[in-house]
Design a protein around this nucleic acid. Structure first.
Lengths: 183, 183
DNA sequence: CCTAGTTGTAATTCACTGATAACAAGCTTG
DNA sequence: CAAGCTTGTTATCAGTGAATTACAACTAGG
């Protein structure tokens, strides 16, 4: 019926994964229906399942995908200048790709599910280690850095930060302090 | 069948609300079934719905409830000593009541739902304002304080902080830095 | 060109879940 | 003690959503 082109399973899988990041970012693990992911990707719902086995495996793939993206951003930032300030500025760039932060947050939230918890702990631990390696920051400096990142993440989820953010006094007050020195 | 005592709707509502905080803390908004809440509270599932109207309204009540709890903890802490350090130490006390932090986190995650977003923004804004009022902290100090709180919250969700936390090197490294001075 | 593998869909299943309705039992107040 | 309100349950429904199965259409290699 459709005049869609045929892709290899790997290519189609990439498209579905991108759709999954969008959808999971909006509605979380439990809240997202595989049907919705299929609709975004432009394929049928059963095919989404066949490509990834289960909804949970697709979610894990989405979490790993956004962690890779964060990894990538930090590595590129460190090429410019290997300090926390530069990494932080680039983390805020992620506000323009809200799905990335949101999938991460939904991963935290779904950590009670054992398989998801394992994956999320590994990913977050990886980011912590990467930050310290790239910048040579102390544990405490890295902790403060990640803390700020977590606030940005939850504020993004609350839709008070980033593009098309709801304008609220307290949120703007906090936002103004984000550009300031960390030490 | 049961030899349960009859309570007033208000009293039973309190019990159901406590059960809801437990359940939503574990499984989030979408992931928690009203049936599970009913089981914990020891009442039938339809009664849970009748007491709160909808699952969403019950979730909102749970979010407000944990915000009140945080409010309460900060106010009590400030009676001892009205500074961020004292408030922070008391926030860490919440690690012993993980449901509180987890419901808050699940609230952030579910903020895409308009009614939930409104409620969560109001609650979080209230906490920010309260912290500043109680301690006289600057916007930036308050932001750093809340940032640390958010990291504690997500680490609690990842089960790497608090009682019966999974032991992981990077998590313990971060935890050690939490007691240190903030400035 | 035909056959075997690959990509994809339609139809269906089946367990589950929030919500409603109808009903039962207990209190309380005149 | 009867009538009416409150507390609570059982039965049920209508919708849904992940997963399975069977099938169709395309493609490539011999």
């Amino acid at each position: 019926m459709t005049s869609r082109v045929r892709l290899t399973a790997a290519e189609r899988g990439e498209e579905v994964l991108r759709a999954a990041v969008q959808a999971f970012g909006r509605s979380g693990y439990e809240g997202t229906k595989t049907d919705e992911i299929a609709r975004i990707a432009g394929v049928s719902q059963p095919y989404v399942i066949r490509l990834f086995g289960t909804k949970q495996q697709l979610f894990l793939a989405a979490v790993r995908s956004v962690c890779d993206r964060i990894d990538q951003i930090f590595r590129e930032a460190a090429k410019e200048s290997a300090d926390l300030r530069t990494l932080g500025q680039n983390y805020e760039v992620l506000l323009a790709e809200p799905e990335v932060l949101l999938v991460l947050l939904h991963g935290f939230s779904a950590s009670a599910e054992p398989a998801i918890g394992d994956c999320v702990r590994e990913c977050f631990g990886g980011i912590y280690r990467l930050v310290r390696e790239l910048t040579g920051a102390s544990a405490r400096e890295a902790r403060e850095f990640l803390s700020a990142g977590m606030l940005i993440t939850v504020m993004s989820a609350m839709q008070v930060l980033g593009p098309n953010a709801i304008s609220i006094p307290w949120a703007e007050e906090i936002q103004k302090t984000l550009g300031q020195d960390e030490d």
